[in-house]
């Protein structure tokens, strides 16, 4: 057990979207910056950098997290999933992502990466989630251009299709 010095960079190893990867980070490096600048996974967006807007939401060891409220050194050894993990293969979107497209649930797309992670986690854990639960989870995100209604419609549509086992929706 050693103290990692503030002024030096340290190796951080994570499992990112199923792949073992590593990068270098000083202790103060935010996980958002580590993902984007070190691991070049730029799908995760950086908004407020103090945990309010939700744009940087990812999964750490299966649980939702604001990646701006975590430092890279904290997640050494962890499993991380970002928005890049959602599409089942290149050129094909997930049921939820397709529903976002169908319902125009994004305009500028800045908040979308985080919202997709939250809703994907919700629908994975609670396939029967209704509008109330979707609204509750969405409350952890700020969207400044789409308006939330299309997002709720997309989530409800995706939930219904997932329940019907429609993997290619």
């Amino acid at each position: 057990m050693t103290t990692l010095a503030a002024t030096e960079t340290h190796t951080v190893r994570v499992r990112l979207n199923g792949r073992a990867v590593e990068g270098r980070a000083t202790p103060r490096m935010l996980l958002t910056d580590f993902l984007r600048h070190e691991l070049h996974a730029t799908g995760t967006h950086v908004g407020c950098e103090h945990g309010v807007c939700g744009a940087c939401t990812i999964r750490i060891d299966g649980a939702l997290a604001r990646s701006c409220l975590a430092y890279a050194v904290q997640v050494d050894g962890a499993t991380i999933e970002t928005v890049e993990s959602l599409a089942p293969e290149r050129g094909r979107l997930s049921v939820l992502q397709t529903a976002f497209q169908r319902h125009h649930a994004l305009q500028c797309g800045f908040c979308t990466a985080g919202i997709l992670m939250s809703l994907d986690t919700l629908l994975g854990a609670e396939p029967d989630a209704g509008e109330d639960r979707i609204r509750e989870v969405l409350a952890g995100h700020l969207c400044r251009c789409t308006g939330y209604q299309p997002i709720i419609r997309a989530a409800l549509d995706a939930a219904a299709r997932l329940r019907e086992g429609d993997a290619d929706a």
């Binding site: 057990m1 103290t3 990692l4 503030a6 002024t7 202790p27 103060r28 103090h50 430092y71 050194v73």
Partner: peptide, 21 residues
């Protein structure tokens, strides 16, 4: 919106955390 530099210690047990503290 980036923190000032800090050292980081991942404590394995409570006595290590308390000693460092």
């Amino acid at each position: 919106m980036k923190p000032a530099p800090f050292d980081y210690l991942r404590a394995d047990d409570i006595s290590a955390a308390l000693s460092a503290l």
